[in-house]
Amino acid sequence: MDAKEIIARRVAQELHDGNVVNLGIGIPTMVADYIPEGIHVMLHSENGFIGLTSVDGEFLDPDIVNAGAKPAAIIPGGACFDSVMSFALIRGGHLDMTVLGALEVDQRGNLANWMVPGKIVPGMGGAMDLVSGAKKVIVAMEHTAKGGAAKILKKCTLPLTGQGVVNMIVTNLAVFTVNDNGLVLTETAPGVSVAAVQAATEADFAVDAALKQMSLG
């Protein structure tokens, strides 16, 4: 199982029946492939609908794409709306969860994922609204950057997407929850020691008394 699959499988365990969820581009999108049997969720797509699902390529409707402009479909029971409604749903607390990638996340729950000054400025898109409005914000990312640099930091160095917004961090090595005192390591991936997590993490974190192995469904 590669790193991305570990992350997507673990995040999928956080979904509850009936949840309305927005999945970001990349690893978060993969979460949809591992939703447990019997759990039905409505996926929200910020370009204007709920009931997002992938397409097999048989029938491509040019008016239905996901928020990354990739062909998509809408399940029976889904609904379409304009951008005002789409973001009212996001900001108004009508989404149970949002799952996003990160460039950096820190021990105060700050998230940076929308620009690297002087290098790349794609823009925040809907990410700032998502992290301020969703009931639960999960960061799903590989534990370290290419080359091994830590991404879970004491303090973010990049411009923030949101301040104190992250509730949970799921990586290929570990699961952290974020509370008022900082990060708590609650799970480690199979075969990964606390020391290995420490070595790959710049942030300070507490180790949960009930530390367990990551459930991958």
Partner: peptide, 9 residues
């Protein structure tokens, strides 16, 4: 650059 929901509002 304006957050998407803020642009709509």
């Amino acid at each position: 650059l304006v957050p998407q929901g803020t642009l709509a509002e």
